[in-house]
Design a protein around this nucleic acid. Structure first.
Ligand code: SF4
Ligand code: SF4
Lengths: 171, 171
DNA sequence: GGGATTGAGCACCAATTGGGTGCTATTTGG
DNA sequence: CCAAATAGCACCCAATTGGTGCTCAATCCC
C-alpha cells in the first residue's frame, strides 16, 4: 500500500519534470515533443499537464508550428505549492476543509463534534508552508542554498506541540 | 478536486478520533461501541480501524464482554507519523520510492533520468518529519506547548533552498 | 455450562479517483 | 494549403478507498 498522504500524482510528477526542463531552457520556447523525447513519459499526458499549467498561469504558450511553452515567470517566483495546486487542486487535508472554496459541499457528519479538525488544519498549513517555501528554482538547483526556510511553517504549526522520539515506521 | 497530497483517508480520520478518545479515557478500557456512540461515524469501519491500530502495536485490546481498547503506550510516545503509517501504509512520495520496502516493484521508466527524484525525496522526508514530530498528546492538547519543533525537518529539507514569496493558491 | 458481549479475521462490493487515450478544433509558419 | 503544435473535452480502464457481511474466538456474568 502506498501512502496517499505523501503521494504526488503522476500528473504532478510529469508537470515538475516538464517545468524543470523549461527552467533548463529558460528564455527559449519548448515544445511538448522535445520534452517527451527527453523523458520516457506518456507524451500525451504530458501535454495535458502543460495545458493545466498554462491555465494556471504558470507557463505561457504559443500555438502553431514552432510553438511551445515557456515559464510565465522566473523560476524563483514559482512555488511548488502553486504547481501542486494547479495540478491536484486546492489544498485540503480532510473532506470538510476546502479553505475558501464553496462551503456547500463540506458535509461531514462529525464536523460538529470533531476533535481533530483544528489540529489537522494546522498540520495542513504546515505542510503547505513547506510547499510554498520551495521554489521551482530551488528544485532545479538542488544541493544548493542550504538555507533554513521554515520560518512560516514553524510559526503556523508550532502550537501542535513538542516533537516525539521520531521512530521510523518503515522498519 | 481534492488535493491528494494533503488528504487523509477516512480511516485515518476515524482512527485519530478514536485515539483521541482513548487519550481522554487514558487508563481505562474503551469499547468500539462507546466511541461509536459519541461520534457519528460508521461504527463498523471504526472497528476495522482499531484493529489495524492494534496490529500496528499502537493500541492494545481485550476481547469478550467488557472488553475494548486502550493505548499501548502513553500518548506522548505515539507519533502522528506512526498512526498514519499504520493506517495508510509506509511513507513514499512517488511510486519509485518505497524507502526500505522491496525494490522489486519500483518500476518507473523515468527513474534513470528523473530530475525530480532527489529533491522530492527530501521534501517527503520533510513532511514526514512533521508527522513524526507531532505526538498524539500534542494533538489532544492543541493550543498548548508553543514549542518550536522542526529541528529535524529543517535539517533534512533545508538544502531545497530559500523560501519563495508564499502566495495563496486557494485564492 | 450457556448466552450475551466484544474483538479478530477475511472476503467482498460499490463509489470515487487517478492514469491514460481519442477526437476535433484552432492557431501559426512555410 | 499543408504540417506542426496547442486547446478543449469526453471518455474508458485500472486502482484505491469507503463501507459491509459473515464467521470465529475470547471473556464476563448468571
Ligand atoms: S469534521 Fe473531522 S472527521 Fe469530518 S472531515 Fe473534518 S476533520 Fe475529518
Ligand atoms: S523516477 Fe521520477 S517520475 Fe518516476 S516515480 Fe520516481 S520521482 Fe516520479
Amino acid at each position: 500500500m502506498l501512502n496517499p498522504l505523501l503521494k504526488l500524482t503522476k500528473r504532478t510528477e510529469y508537470g515538475l519534470i516538464a517545468l524543470l526542463h523549461l527552467v533548463d531552457r529558460e528564455g527559449e520556447i519548448v515544445s511538448v515533443r522535445e520534452v517527451g523525447d527527453r523523458y520516457p513519459v506518456p507524451r500525451r499526458l504530458l501535454a495535458e499537464t502543460l495545458k493545466d499549467l498554462g491555465r494556471a498561469g504558470i507557463v505561457e504558450s504559443q500555438r502553431g508550428a514552432g510553438g511551445g511553452y515557456w515559464l510565465a515567470r522566473p523560476a524563483e517566483a514559482i512555488t511548488l505549492g502553486e504547481i501542486v495546486a494547479a495540478l491536484e487542486g486546492a489544498p485540503s487535508l480532510t473532506s470538510c476543509q476546502d479553505l475558501g472554496a464553496a462551503r456547500t459541499d463540506g458535509e461531514c457528519d462529525v464536523q460538529e463534534v470533531c476533535p481533530i479538525r483544528s489540529p489537522l488544519t494546522r498540520l495542513r498549513q504546515g505542510i503547505w508552508a513547506l510547499l510554498e517555501g520551495t521554489t521551482l528554482r530551488s528544485l532545479a538547483n538542488t544541493s544548493l542554498h542550504p538555507t533554513a526556510l521554515f520560518s512560516s511553517a514553524q510559526a503556523v504549526v508550532a502550537p501542535l506541540g513538542p516533537a516525539g522520539q521520531g521512530e521510523d515506521p518503515a522498519a
